[in-house]
């Protein structure tokens, strides 16, 4: 008889609210150029959401703004308008809207766009993540975990793997800002990450392990590129991790119930 509010748009808006510290810090450092970039991506994502609303009767979502923020922060800078437009459209349409919009997609549209641009234009320079932006990811994680949108399990899983990596002598000093931003913007997306409890631990750990692997053996890659590649693979593996977690849950249950 009474009804709660945690539908898709509430979650999307709360996610946006949680991301505000990150957005504000980044904008204050990127200045007008950053604001214009953000506006550009908001416009592109918004237009595609509008097209799908009119053509396919899919309600537009605030999740488009999350995608736009991630892209504004992470897309290579000197790419030119047309390649950026193509890449963004590919990500937003193929990774999200074609599946029926946010909540039905498999991969995060921002991750797909970035991976697409990374493969398509390998020479483009990836943006640097400055230290304050990296720190701004901390309040985002705290707010997100507190309201239950970001998973503490993913963050801890990733953190533990980094801890192990660092104990084994890995140097993460160059990549940690990009990793922090990537974790809250791309990896922890509640839809594109694993949705079981054990699956989330594994999801975070897999991301951490991939980043560690790339840092150790992919020397010519930029930090953002490493994070995007690791996020893409971790997100692709999420359904598999979920299946494994469910199989384990069922096996444990069978043993307990006899």
């Amino acid at each position: 008889m009474i009804r709660g509010l945690w539908d898709r748009e509430t979650v999307a808006i709360l996610f946006l609210v949680a991301l505000l510290p990150l957005a504000a810090t980044w904008l204050s450092h990127a200045g007008w150029a950053g604001a214009i970039r953000l506006l550009f991506f908001l416009l592109v994502a918004g237009i595609w959401h509008l097209v799908f609303m009119l053509a396919r009767a899919q309600p537009p979502s605030f999740a488009g703004a999350i995608t736009a923020l991630a892209l504004a922060m992470l897309v290579p800078g000197d790419l030119g308008v047309v390649p950026t437009l193509l890449g963004t459209s590919f990500g937003v349409v193929i990774a999200e809207l074609a599946f029926g919009g946010w909540g039905r997609n498999v991969l995060n549209p921002a991750t797909v766009t970035l991976a697409f641009l990374g493969f398509g234009f390998p020479a483009a320079p990836w943006p640097d993540m400055i230290v304050p932006v990296g720190w701004a990811a901390v309040p985002v994680a705290v707010i997100g975990v507190f309201i239950g949108i970001l998973s503490l399990r993913i963050l801890t899983g990733a953190g533990l793997t980094f801890g192990i990596g660092m104990a084994l002598g890995l140097d993460l000093a160059d990549v940690w800002t990009a990793v922090a931003v990537g974790l809250v913007l791309l990896v922890c997306d509640p839809v594109a990450s694993a949705s079981t409890q054990l699956g989330r631990w594994l999801n975070g750990a897999l991301f951490g392990a991939l980043v560690a692997l790339f840092v150790a053996h992919w020397t010519e890659a930029a930090p953002v590129q490493i994070v995007v590649s690791a996020a893409l693979i971790a997100s692709l593996a999420a359904p598999l991790l979920d299946e494994a977690a469910i199989a384990l849950w069922l096996a444990r249950r069978r043993r307990r119930l006899g």
């Binding site: 945690w6 539908d7 898709r8 979650v11 009767a57 899919q58 309600p59 029926g100 919009g101 946010w102 909540g103 039905r104 239950g148 949108i149 998973s151 509640p190 839809v191 949705s195 079981t196 409890q197 979920d242 977690a245 469910i246 849950w249």
Partner: peptide, 23 residues
């Protein structure tokens, strides 16, 4: 137009089914 509406797997969703079952 698009039913069922998508469910976003958040902590609230897990807790609504008790937190044990893969919600």
């Amino acid at each position: 137009a698009s039913r069922p509406k998508p469910l976003i797997p958040t902590a609230a969703l897990d807790q609504a089914l008790g937190g044990d079952l893969p919600a």
